[in-house]
Amino acid sequence: MIDIKDLHKSYQVGKNKLHVLKGINFHVEEGELVAIMGSSGSGKSTLLNILGILDEADEGSYHLDGTEIKNLTEKTAARYRNKFLGFIFQSFNLINYKSALDNVALPLFYQGMSGKERTARANDYLERVGLSDWATHLPNELSGGQKQRVAIARAMASHPKVLLADELTGALDSQTSYEIMDLIQKINDEGKTILVVTHEPDIAQMTKRIVNLKDGIIIDDKKIEQQKALANV
């Protein structure tokens, strides 16, 4: 599903060049649930940005579901993001003047789907995350956990190939975090490929594979025994 070969990325900071990613080789199969770990400055966010087609690598190749991601125009990048990827953010990033339903429907709007179809599918996904009763509520009327569920529903709505979650439990207490992780595990069990960036070891333990990043290279990449989130609730 994801195939990265010898990926390099550096940033210009003042007069100095900051080499962030120093040759990443990384492969993800369909249906995997991967945690990317690393301390700050390890390059994990940069990697996620490149995976999310929000940033482009200087060197190396990146294939997403067999499509090479290289030298894209802004328009194609937008289309690929919409088609291939679902984003889940630490701070939820819901649009605060739109109802939960409209938030979920937003990526479908950018797909050019008709209004009726959109509402139907958005409702469907809200139900899957257990929030169909909250469809008309604005984000500020929802709890943190509920917001993240809406965000997950939004990420799923466009039927992406890969879900990218950036510290998705970072703003939640551990009880809610586990509930959210349970949802993530369930979605993964249905066959969706999910990448989670986190620095919390207990969250990482709930995935199936942990990739450790340090100073721009992968120092450790191992499959683990998945811990069910429900056990901790």
Binding site: G52, L54, E74, K75, A78, R79, R81, N82, K83, F87, F89, N93, I95, L106, P107, Y110, Q111, R154, S158
Partner: peptide, 13 residues
């Protein structure tokens, strides 16, 4: 932030 989110969700420039 909202514009960034919209673009991440697939809005073209």
């Amino acid at each position: 932030k909202e514009i960034g989110v919209r673009r991440a969700l697939g809005a073209t420039p």
